[in-house]
């Protein structure tokens, strides 16, 4: 075998392996798109549809548009179906909760990271180590406590209790330690000399932070914003315990509610999954360079 043929063979082998992987990866996504346009409720199983199987009923349901469904094929009797609390509300709930929680997280972790990176104070090292160890505790294990605390607080302040968005946002605000480490890692790479010269010119600590360091650190804040926002948009366990009323559901809780034990409404789930998954995926892909960079270089320093 000549070297040229050997190379060609290797290339064909590599391509076929990669194509096999791409097929495995893409087919679930293609099937879910198909399932959202398919009449009736079928689990994702086909990529192409017959024309007579096409239907927009699931999309109409998800978007809150009323549509007619034949309930008796012999008489042609129909009924009008419209979502009681349209899944679009869930998407909006998720955006509200994630937006508020993310902004809160950025404010809390940005200021804390500044102190850890720039100021030397007594408990700096133990606090940093403590944050690192405590962040490894899964929030799922504290669900009992979150549930009880929100229940008790809700007895006094109704709007912070169970089944409220502010209550859920408050619980989410606890997840700052990873972000503190990430932002601190970025601050550490920026020389302090700029701020020091600003201090010499008469700026206060806070002014130096706000006017000098923050504008230079926008990339890491973008990373933290995107990562946190996407994480909260799709967070399931905490939201499922805190939110029990369909009106207050977030996206993840609502999407899962379509696939209950008794009835699996795959079509509606698929439509909601495509509607919400596509924008999140596109945002993630657009930002993946920064995101991956942040993930690798953030807390962990080579």
């Amino acid at each position: 075998m000549t070297p040229a043929r050997k190379l060609l063979l290797k290339k064909i082998l590599a391509h076929s392996l990669l194509i096999a992987f791409v097929v495995i990866v893409l087919s679930p996504f293609a099937m879910v798109v198909t399932a959202s346009f398919r009449k009736g409720n079928f689990a994702p199983s086909k990529i192409l549809l017959q024309p007579q199987e096409l239907s927009l009923e699931h999309w109409k349901y998800v978007l809150g548009i009323p549509y007619k469904e034949v309930i008796n094929p012999t008489t042609g009797e129909t009924r009008t179906i419209q979502a009681g609390s349209p899944p679009l509300v869930w998407l909006w709930n998720s955006i509200k909760v994630s937006g508020a929680a993310t902004i809160g997280i950025i404010l809390l972790s940005g200021t804390a990271a500044y102190a850890f990176s720039r100021i030397r104070f007594t408990f700096r090292r133990p606090l940093l180590t403590g944050l690192l160890i405590l962040q490894m505790f899964p929030a799922v294990l504290m669900l009992v406590a979150y549930h009880t605390i929100l229940d008790d607080v809700g007895q006094t302040v109704r709007s912070l209790g169970l089944n409220t968005h502010p209550g859920l946002i408050l619980v989410y605000l606890g997840g700052i330690s990873t972000n503190i480490w990430m932002i601190k890692g970025y601050f550490d790479t920026i020389p302090a000399s700029m701020e020091e010269s600003a201090r010499i010119d008469g700026a206060s600590h806070f002014q130096a932070f706000l006017r000098v360091l923050l504008p230079m650190s926008l990339p890491i804040f973008a990373v933290v914003f995107i990562l946190s926002f996407i994480f909260f948009m799709t967070e399931y366990p905490i939201a499922s315990v805190v939110l029990t009323n369909t009106d207050t559901y977030t996206l993840a809780v609502g999407a899962y509610s379509f696939l209950g034990e008794q009835e699996k409404l795959w079509g509606r789930f698929a439509a909601l999954a495509v509607l919400s998954g596509v924008p999140i995926t596109v945002i993630f892909l657009l930002c993946q360079k920064f995101v991956i960079g942040g993930l690798v270089s953030g807390g962990v320093k080579e």
Partner: peptide, 25 residues
Amino acid sequence: AYAYRYLFPGLLGFGLFVIFPLLYT
């Protein structure tokens, strides 16, 4: 307590929603 002016909001959130629930558990 100057350094803690920056740390306080973050540590308060961490204390209330991580350490307190942990102890509560």
